Simulated assay, not measured.
Amino acid sequence: MNGISVAEYAARRERVLEGLGGAAGVVFAGEGGPPLLGRWTANKHFIYLTGITNEPGAAVLFDPTSPDPSKRITLLLRSRDPEREHWDGYRDPLNHALKEKTGFTSIARSGGIAGALTSAARRGRRFACLHPYSVYPGAVSPDLAAFRQVTERVPGVAIEDKTQLLIEMRSIKSEAELALMQKAVDATVDGYKAALAAIQPGVSERVVAEALESAFRKHGGEHAYNPIVGGGMNATVLHYMDNDQVLKEGELVLIDAGASFAGYAADVTRTYPVSGRFTDEQQYLYNLVLESELAGIAASRAGAAMWEVDRAARAVFEKAGMPDCYTYGVGHGLGLDVHDALPDGVLKPGMVITIEPGLYLADKALGIRIEDDILITDGDPINLTAAIPK
Rank of each mutant, 00 (worst) to 15 (best):
I297Q: 05
A315K: 10
R311Y: 07
A315Y: 05
I297A: 03
Y328E: 06
E291A: 07
E293L: 07
A295C: 03
A313Y: 12
E291K: 01
V330D: 06
A312D: 11
M322G: 04
G331T: 07
A312K: 00
A305N: 04
G331Y: 05
R314P: 08
A299E: 02
M322S: 12
I297C: 02
L294S: 05
Y328L: 01
T327M: 14
S300R: 10
M306Q: 07
A295E: 07
D310L: 01
L294E: 11
A312H: 00
G331D: 08
M306G: 02
M322F: 15
V316H: 01
A320W: 15
A304N: 03
G331A: 12
K319R: 11
P323S: 06
P323T: 08
E318T: 07
F317Y: 10
Y326M: 13
F317S: 03
M322Q: 14
W307G: 08
W307R: 10
E291V: 00
D324W: 06
Y326L: 09
R314N: 13
A312T: 02
A295Q: 14
T327K: 15
V330H: 12
A313H: 05
A299C: 08
S292G: 01
G331V: 10
D324Y: 09
G329T: 13
A302Q: 10
A315W: 02
E293H: 03
K319T: 06
G321S: 04
D324P: 03
R314H: 06
R314M: 08
E318K: 07
E318L: 10
K319V: 03
Y326Q: 04
G321C: 14
T327R: 15
A305S: 09
E318N: 13
A298Y: 02
A295L: 14
W307F: 13
Y326W: 15
A320K: 01
D324H: 09
A298G: 09
A313R: 15
E291Q: 04
G303Q: 10
S292E: 05
R311C: 11
A315E: 12
G329K: 09
S292T: 01
I297P: 02
M322K: 09
A313S: 14
A295H: 03
G303F: 07
G303T: 14
P323C: 07
E308R: 01
K319L: 02
A298T: 05
A295N: 02
S292Q: 01
K319A: 02
G331S: 11
E318M: 13
P323D: 14
A304V: 03
R301T: 07
E308L: 12
A302D: 07
A299S: 14
L294G: 03
G331Q: 13
M322C: 10
E308N: 08
E293T: 00
Y326P: 13
V330T: 07
D324R: 13
A320N: 02
W307D: 10
P323F: 15
L294K: 08
A312S: 00
L294W: 11
E318A: 12
S292F: 10
E318D: 14
A299Q: 08
L294N: 05
P323E: 10
C325G: 04
V330Q: 13
L294F: 10
E293A: 05
G331K: 15
V316D: 05
S300N: 04
A295G: 03
S292H: 03
E293Q: 02
Y326N: 15
A315V: 05
V309L: 11
